[in-house]
Every structure is written in structure tokens, then in C-alpha cells.
Amino acid sequence: MSALSLPKRCSALARPRALLLAALAAAAAIVPLFLDPQGYWVRVLTLTLIFAALGQAWNIVGGLANQISLGHAAYFGVGAYASTILLINFGLSPWIGLFVGMALAVVVALVLSVPTFRLKGHYFALATLAAGEALRVIANSWQGVTGGPVGLSVPFMPDSFWMMSYGAPRPFYWIALAALVLVTLVFWWIKSSALGYRLRAVKENEQAAEVVGVNTFRAKLWASLVSAAATAAIGVVYVQFTYFFDPDAVFGVATVSVRLALVAIVGGIGTVIGPVVGALVVVPLEELVNAALQGQVAGLSAFVYGAILIAVILVEPRGLVALFGRLRRGLGRRPGGAGEAGR
């Protein structure tokens, strides 16, 4: 995971940032060595990394092309169910199930692209929301295959990399970190490729992009297929890590679709570091508020969590990365070199 693995297209200007990110990833990799391997913080950080990776996958369509999907749970759940059903019924390794899940998610994305890609703005968001909900209803009703509302338990197995099964959370931390690094590299690569420029054209003005000869449908389709596949793969890691899930846990609007978009938005959409920052805030914040207010009156912790989200959005609607940029410019009084990261 060195800078060498980055595509050559990265400009010289981006290289220091690439090195910085590589250093960050390396630092992140050794963090769990200092924590109780079975403990709470490893677990919370693993969930953080998983949601950072999900936010980054969402960022590929949501950030680059500004296609605000509220239905990414569809892909997440398809990956989770595909691999777990194969594991339970055929003893297939989740690593193989992961590819099956990715393939199925690509199919779902292809099918959904037909009715949704002509839609703009809010219509697109609401249509994807409905699509995710439709899959939840299917998972709930198709009891013979999915286990229905009762949910599925990942079989208890001895520690094994091949079966992606560990009793302690620490190995999952590294798997989630690897997933985050991979998705981030894909995001970065797309962002600086020709596809990235086309997506940005879609974001700025779709009609104008069409006029100058950009095949916007194809650009959006590629981005959404990659995003769907990545989301499904992370879905597999998530359920191997949590061992149990039901339709609400993987297809839910609030639990998955909105949460992973939130991660990207709180951090700052369209930026490389945004989803990471967002996840580092959103996931541990929920835990900290829950811990701080444990034993208090019912509803208080969720209330405070919601209030903090509102406050973040009101202070800086473009996300925390933009806020940091603003603060740094304000403090150092120099036009920020990385100011571009905010947008």
C-alpha cells in the first residue's frame, strides 16, 4: 500500500497528498496493536472503517456525479445475503461469496439504472429510496431463501482467514482498513481519470455535458456499477463482522442508506478524505453520546446525537473538510493549498 500503487495519472501536485494518505493508512494499521484485541475500541474503530469505506463507495456516484442515492442499502444487502446464503447452504468461503455478491449488485444497479438515470435531483434520491425499500420487502417475504424477518446467523467457525471468520474484532479491523484503502484508491483513480472528468461534467451541468458530446448515461452507469460492487463487497465484511443480520439491519433506510450517505456528507462529498473524516465523527460520536448518557432518560442520547448532526450541517453545510479548510485559512491567513479538497 505504497504510493507506487497509485495510478501514474496522479499529478505531481497530488503526490504529497498521496504520501500523506499512505502514511495515515500505515498509522491506522498499527493502532489496534495498542488496544485490547477483543475490546470495545477495536470494535468501534472497525465499524468506523467499514462506514468510511461505505461512504467512499457512495462518494463515487454521490460525490463525483452528485447523484444523491438514498438506496445504497440495496447493494449492501444483496452482498450480505448472497455471501451468507452461499456460506450457510454450501459452505462457500465469504471471499467467493463476496464476488458473487458484487456481481449480483452490479445486476441490480444495471436494472435500476434504466428507470432512475433520467431522473434529476430529488426525484433520483426518492426513486433510489424506494428501490432499497423494495428489496427490503423482498428479503422480508422470500422466507425460503433469505430466512425472512427472523434474519440469518453467520455460522460459528474457528478462526480462519479463508472463511473470513474470527472470534475477536481485531482481524476485521485490518480487513475493513484494507477495504477502505482499496475503495479510496478506486475513488481516487476514477476521480483523476477521464471518467472522473465526465462525471464532474454531469455534476456541473448534465445538459451542457450532453451537448459537448459526453455520454452522460454511460458515465453515470460506470460509476454506479463500481459503487454498487464496492458497497456489496463491504456488506459481506460487515455481516461477517457482526455475525447476525435481518432485513432491517442490511436493507434499512435509516440503518444503512441514510447512514452511509451521511458519513460522506458530514465529511464533505466529492473529496478523498471526506468520508473518512465523516465516519470518524459520525460513528464514534453515536457511541460516545450513547456511553455518556447511559442510564439517562429514554430518548436523550438519540436526541443529542440528532442535535449535533443539525449543528454540524448548520455550521458548515459543505461538511467538515470544508470547515477545516476554512479554519486553516482563517488561522494561517494563507490561501490553502489543499483548499481544493473542500470542493
Partner: peptide, 21 residues
């Protein structure tokens, strides 16, 4: 030690883990 499990299974598990650790 009382805490909100929320409605999300993964969060409930995290809360339990926290109490144990």
C-alpha cells in the same frame, strides 16, 4: 449499567461490548 440498544443490532452489540470492556 443501563444503555440504549437503539434499534440497530450492530449498535446493540457495540453497547454490550462497551459494558464488558
Amino acid at each position: 449499567v443501563v444503555a440504549d440498544s437503539t434499534s440497530t443490532p450492530a449498535t446493540a452489540a457495540s453497547v454490550a461490548q462497551r459494558m464488558i470492556s
